[in-house]
């Protein structure tokens, strides 16, 4: 069983949802991003999503797009991903890399899979690679024991929910509302409807992303999902901080609040 599957089995046994936290590598700088990822793990995040900064992040809203811009201006390189992966794995959480497809393609799909596995990574989440185009990646991932997480959306047809979920390992990423990443004041019903529809197709755990920013929202989503994914709200902790130390404090506080949320009695 993969590291991700093990964590999700454990949290299910504990009668709670898992907390998945996203941060991009290189924001505010390389060391700062790694320190923040480790702080998340120490404060209750179960699985870390490590974002690869990319010049054309067309699924991301302004907060994450800005962080990617800064990371690239800082000279963040693709190889830095593996440094972050090693640090997260060392801190004791599965490290899933979230990346647009072209950086992996340019690095070489097989070479990327080999190097990710060697660094102790858990797998990939691919927001612009659907399983239909992912044959080479799935083979490379299987060979290395890496998870391949794909996304489902409210607009997915029943047929696509079936084919996409059957291509997922680790978990299924339910992009809960139509739109790009970013905190929303209301999580809405769309997430629960999507999770219900997805469950009819698969026994693989389902984690919900896009929009969660508070402990209360995390608790709300945890009532029906196997995992709660938080991204922009965590990135904002770093973006809004007056100093690196303040940023880490904010990351710890929000992680703890979210971790309490996913543990609230269902």
């Amino acid at each position: 069983m993969s590291g991700v599957a093990t964590v999700l089995a454990k949290t299910r046994e504990q009668g709670r949802a898992a907390l998945v936290g996203y941060l991009p590598v290189g924001f505010p700088d390389l060391q700062g991003s790694i320190d923040a990822m480790v702080a998340m793990v120490e404060s209750g995040v179960d699985i870390v999503e490590i974002g690869v900064p990319y010049t054309d992040p067309l699924m991301d809203g302004p907060v994450i797009a800005h962080a990617a811009d800064v990371a690239l201006q800082n000279g963040t390189r693709l190889a830095d991903i593996f440094t972050a992966v090693r640090a997260v794995a060392h801190a004791g959480a599965p490290a899933l890399v979230m990346t647009y497809w072209n950086p992996v393609l340019r690095y070489g799909v097989d070479r990327f899979a080999d190097d990710l596995a060697r660094a102790g990574g858990a797998g990939l989440i691919t927001p612009d690679l659907i399983p239909d185009e992912g044959a080479q990646w799935i083979v490379a991932a299987e060979r290395n024991g890496l998870d391949h997480v794909f996304l489902v959306a409210p607009s997915s047809t029943p047929q696509r929910l079936r084919s996409t979920t059957s291509a997922c390992t680790g978990f299924v990423y339910a992009a809960s509302s139509m739109g790009v990443t970013g905190a929303r004041t209301s999580v809405g019903d769309a997430a629960e409807v999507l999770v219900t529809r997805t469950r009819q197709m698969t026994a693989t755990p389902i984690c919900v992303g896009l929009g969660v920013s508070t402990g209360a929202q995390a608790a709300q989503v945890a009532a029906f999902a196997d995992g709660v994914i938080v991204g922009s709200a965590l990135v904002r902790c770093l973006a809004d901080a007056a100093s690196p130390a303040d940023g880490l404090t904010a990351i710890r506080e929000l992680s703890a609040e979210l971790a309490a949320g996913v543990r609230r009695k269902r």
């Binding site: 612009d128 659907i130 185009e133 607009s155 992009a175």
Partner: peptide
Amino acid sequence: GGRYVPEALVAALE
């Protein structure tokens, strides 16, 4: 060619 897009767009493309 191909279709390297978020899943959310696939239904509209179809």
